[in-house]
Design a protein around this nucleic acid. Structure first.
Lengths: 166, 166
DNA sequence: TTTTATTTTCAATAATTACTGAAAGTTTTA
DNA sequence: TAAAACTTTCAGTAATTATTGAAAATAAAA
């Protein structure tokens, strides 16, 4: 398979995969394009390669910067902005996890907590309060456990670096 | 807050939360309704409470059964089908994880593996192959990690049961 | 300051995704 | 076997979500 062919398959794949999770398909495709590019790309490069509008390219690039997955990169003598993706996939995973936690887990926990103020007199409330409590504990525990495992993985990562330096 | 009020807020919440991940909003709402119902519900109950059509109720109930989150439950003397949700949230988490792995991770890994057959002559392929390999390792590791989380949580769960028995 | 290059915004539109409702299919009862 | 009760399907439609493209805003150069 030729590189360009493999690259465009990867862009498609990443776009479909992203849109199965709550991530905009085009945003995932821009990300995939930058991940597979050795050079920094301009908005025009991205518009051309992905056949999307200037507006779309701009909005998705800025969103990728909010997620900390893409940075601006100036080229001397060129007024245009160029963009590069963070290539360390471990960093990528950490940043996606962090952003999703912030956007989803935190508001969920907040809402669930509020729901526990349900009137306890209603007999149906008994199971309801238990359910909400179970979900809180489950989500909270998974959140903590994923932090623990991220740290474990990180230590394993740095551990192997340190061994290399010895 | 009254029970019915809290219940409908929960249904909304679960629906919105589900649709942020790739889960159909109505399916998540049907799930939420069944999770918060003490009694088994008929298709008509669900249509009425959520104000959805018979077709929608039917399709989403069957999808919930594919995910193993909802079961049919017969009522003696009634020809209608009634439905109940699995109430053990730990089981719910395991089944959702299992289904998403099957639908998303396995096909992704398969596609990524195929992309590694890219022509190595192209200088851009060097980074491409590294990227694909990194993603494979990362996804594979996260997959294992989620197994680890599940086992840790399961042990924590049984651990607390055992403590109760002592 | 004016011109030019570039980025950003957002109303209109397109694409996608989900839902309805009635007809067809199935199962049960009489 | 026929009628009744209930479930399933799916073409048409509605709702949601994403994209375009041109105008406005901003920044740099002349």
């Amino acid at each position: 398979m030729k590189f360009t062919e493999a690259q465009s398959e990867f862009i498609q794949l990443w776009g479909n995969f992203g849109s199965q999770w709550g991530i905009n398909k085009t945003m995932a495709q821009v990300h995939a394009l930058l991940l597979t590019s050795d050079e920094a790309l301009s908005t025009d490069d991205i518009m051309e390669t992905l056949a999307i509008s200037r507006g779309g390219a701009n909005v998705n690039l800025r969103e990728l910067m909010v997620w900390n997955l893409v940075y601006k990169s100036a080229k001397p003598g060129d007024r245009k902005e160029f963009f590069v993706a963070e290539k360390d996939m471990w960093e990528v995973a950490k940043r996606i996890t962090r952003e999703r936690k912030r956007r989803e887990i935190e508001p969920l926990m907040h809402h669930l907590n509020r729901l526990k103020t349900v009137d306890e007199a209603d007999p149906q409330s008994l199971n309801f309060v238990k359910l909400v409590g179970d979900i809180e504990r489950l989500v909270g525990r998974m959140n903590k456990t994923s932090d623990t495992i991220m740290k474990m993985e990180e230590n394993a990562f740095f551990g192997s670096i340190i061994r290399l330096l010895k």
